[in-house]
Amino acid sequence: MSPWVLRGLREGVVTTRWPNRPDNYASSWRGPAAAPGQVPVSDELTAICPAGAISAGPDQTVRIDQGKCVLCGRCVTARPEVFGWSAGAEVAALTRAGLVVPAAEETDAGLAQVRAALAARTAALRRSVHVRHVDAGSDGSEEQEIAALLNPVYDLHRLGIFFTASPRHADVLLVSGTGTTGMAEPLRETYAGMPDPKVVIAVGTDAVSGGLLAGPPVTYGGIGDLLPVDIWVPGSPPPPFSILHALLIATGRLR
């Protein structure tokens, strides 16, 4: 027998059981910044964030747009009584507004509607899903985290999810990067080449909002400017568990 096979067997199972069993690394992940209390907003507070993620909600209390958060932690260090980290890797949202925390109460009904629409659209995908990834101007770290899903710790294949080379075979489009002018057309062509039903996932803060790079002349403010996005994954970059969480939402296996 090949020495490689023996070596692989000797190691035993290293694969996570998530989502069927809780995973310690996923639940202890330090997610984007959050503002747990109802603190009145001030210029001093909004000026802390280099990415412009801190703003005022309709009631003039602090809101954090996790889709803009680059996880630098400056707000948590400067004002720990106002800001904190969100816990856990399950950070994906079905709407762009859903990434603004604390969430407004009235969006619940709207969210249920979005969820039902996505579930109806993806009902046929459930147990066998093919994913196409496109880099639309990332810093290269999102690709590392997406590719990590194939290592034996996450083992994407156990969930019936596979990467495919051809957009013609793809159900899910994973897009990373802020959306550069150069990638706008190749991205649209890839999307157009996919059969219906299709799901688009924006992976990472850059893809969600453009992050620190948002805006003309060279880049768009996230890929939402180019494609209809179904699932938004914040993080700079998001860890593999966050991307996996989004893929399972896309296939209707998690809510």
Partner: peptide
Amino acid sequence: LYYKHRGIEGRMRQRTPVD
């Protein structure tokens, strides 16, 4: 190479060194 040109150096200008 141009597909991924993001114009980062332009974004650096007028920011503080810490940013």
